[in-house]
């Protein structure tokens, strides 16, 4: 468990941002459900719960999720009952435990780029913008590649479209982190493929979507391509070799849904 010297609840994002950047050893507090594993000593904890970032709204084909919305808020919102055929709701409702989802925030998940997050793997293939207080709008694609930003994540914006999406996950028990998660989205001839829990953070594939766009439908070729371009590592849940194998299996299953 970390130690904190001070705790504040700013009333606005501006105020929170000022505190965050002016104090180098400060930490934004979302749900706190991951932070507790840290052993750091933090000078200032900045709790965003009174900054009005807990909302989910839908307007003009865009769904906005405030950073302080919990994973349960997403799971239980009427908006996600229908959006993407309920896929977002389904993916989120399989994450760890109900208790955790009631506290863990969307902002915390996205900002921290948690490697094991199924949600990030799915977001990676959707049209998602990550909105920061100071930096402004960044596409999820760019965000996943960027070094950590000392800025406050305000919301994520998902553009509703008719992407055909398949999400696959492999876990050893139902209440666990995934050994691997994989999402494929297709819009006509355009493909996006993200692989998470490698065990590192969700990564978008580059070469394999091209192959698919060019019309390659040979399963072995595209699977080989994907497992070649995505790096895997060992951890307690699986070896990199096994992950590579499972990636191929999940990819095949995903393709059978989107092709």
């Amino acid at each position: 468990m970390f130690k904190a010297v001070d705790y504040v609840r700013p009333k606005s994002i501006g105020e929170a941002h000022d505190l965050f950047v002016s104090n180098t050893n400060s930490q934004i507090l979302g749900g706190g459900t991951y932070l507790y594993l840290s052993k750091r000593t933090i000078q200032l904890l900045i709790d965003l719960q009174e900054t009005s970032l807990k909302y989910i709204s839908q307007k003009d084909g865009k769904i906005r999720i405030g950073a302080m919305s919990t994973l349960s808020d997403v799971e239980e919102s009427d908006i996600f009952k229908n959006a993407f055929n309920g896929l977002v709701k389904k993916v989120v409702s399989d994450i760890w435990s109900y208790q955790l989802r009631n506290a863990a925030t969307v902002g915390g998940t996205v900002y921290s780029r948690l490697g094991f997050s199924e949600f990030l793997t799915l977001l990676a293939v959707l049209d998602v913008d990550v909105v920061f207080h100071n930096t402004g709008v960044i596409s999820i694609k760019d965000f996943l590649k960027m070094p950590p930003l000392r800025d406050i994540l305000k919301e994520i914006v998902i553009t509703e479209n008719d992407l055909k999406v398949s999400f696959q996950v492999f876990k050893r028990t139902h209440f666990d982190f995934p050994v691997l998660s994989l999402a494929v989205a297709r819009c006509d001839d355009e493909f996006r493929i993200a692989v998470g829990s490698r065990p590192g953070c969700a990564l978008l594939a580059k070469d394999t979507p091209k192959l698919l766009s060019e019309g390659c439908r040979d399963l072995k070729t595209v699977c080989d391509s994907l497992i070649r371009e995505i790096p895997f590592a060992d951890d307690l849940r699986a070896s990199s070799e096994y992950r590579r194998h499972v990636c191929g299996v999940l990819f095949k299953r995903a393709l059978s849904e989107v092709l």
């Binding site: 050893r172 028990t173 139902h174 209440f175 666990d176 307690l236």
Partner: peptide, 27 residues
């Protein structure tokens, strides 16, 4: 499910309930 792993120095790696997973009601 209940896998026990040590590292090469003899440290128990599966030393938390996060990493030593017992069956849940769905397993």
């Amino acid at each position: 499910y209940e896998e026990v792993k040590y590292d090469s120095k003899g440290r128990l790696m599966t030393n938390s309930m996060m990493n030593y997973r017992i069956p849940s009601r769905l397993d």
